[in-house]
């Protein structure tokens, strides 16, 4: 039986051209050269990569564009670039330099029409909307600015709204789970995966291989993203995919 596979997506947090990974987005550790790491992930069987520029500022744009160009000439799988993207021009520069998709986060909340503009200009396939969520008074709510700023947007309604505006995929991160290695937020992932027509990438909390099995099997995520466990080789991408295959979850084995 052949079918569409579940994707494993390593995320590389980029600061000043280097890979870093924090716990709850605060404490940073250096995990190396992004292009080298990206190539290692490709060789191990990663299905896609996400590069998140966590210190993106206007003056850093040029450096990021060069890094994207460098990545594009070295890796042969799709990759997404996110972090500080707030205009059509920002996106054009990244796509021109070889990014396959871009991801919006805070800027989508501040200016939802940006999603429409980008999807009509470049196509939905390259517009990933990252949604960071947290339970506030028991309700899963959208938070922005790396989790520091709460909004009044309920997570599910926002997910549906971004899809109506033309988002091609949703990258869902539970800020309560991110960095904890205690498992993905299964309930909200399941609810959003059922509520939207586009693929949902689950992020935040993956610590052991069973967590990935749960998020695919129980929460119906289409893809799962993680960073530090791959960076520091706590879980190998190859062994993770072999494990998932043994659990009857369709994955691309190489």
């Amino acid at each position: 039986m052949t079918m569409l596979t579940k994707r494993i997506i390593p995320c590389l947090d980029i600061k000043d051209g280097r890979t870093v990974k924090g716990t709850n987005f605060v404490e940073l550790r250096d995990a190396g050269d992004p292009v080298e790491l990206a190539m290692r992930y490709c060789a191990e069987g990663a299905d896609e990569l996400v590069f998140l520029d966590i210190t993106a500022t206007t003056e850093k744009r040029k450096t990021l564009a060069q890094l994207v160009r460098n990545i594009a000439t070295h890796i042969n799988i799709p990759f997404t670039v996110g972090g500080g993207i707030s205009s059509v021009d920002d996106v054009r520069v990244l796509l021109d330099n070889g990014a396959d998709k871009i991801s919006l986060n805070t800027s989508a909340v501040q200016n939802p029409s940006l999603i429409n503009q980008l999807s009509s200009q470049f196509g939905s396939q390259c517009v990933v909307v990252a949604i960071d969520v947290k339970r506030i008074h028991g309700v899963w709510t959208v938070v922005t600015h790396g989790g520091r700023t709460p909004t009044t947007l309920p997570a599910i309604a926002w997910a549906q709204q971004v899809c109506d505006a033309g988002a091609g995929e949703i990258l869902l991160t539970s800020m309560e789970h991110d960095g904890t290695k205690s498992g993905f937020a299964l309930d909200i992932t399941r609810e959003i995966a059922a509520a939207v027509p586009v693929p949902v990438i689950a992020s935040g909390g993956g610590g052991i291989m069973q967590h990935f099995e749960e998020v695919f099997q129980d929460a119906r995520a289409d893809a799962a993203l993680a960073a530090s466990i791959f960076h520091f080789r706590e879980i190998g991408i190859g062994e993770l995919k072999k494990y998932l295959h043994q659990q009857q979850i369709p994955v691309r084995l190489i």
């Binding site: 052949t2 079918m3 569409l4 596979t5 579940k6 994707r7 299905d47 939905s124 396939q125 091609g168 995929e169 027509p197 586009v198 693929p199 289409d222 893809a223 691309r252």
Partner: peptide
Amino acid sequence: NPAQASLKVPQIGWNTIS
């Protein structure tokens, strides 16, 4: 047809060629 077998449309990801 997205109604069929709860397919996500568009299809995004890795599939086999036969």
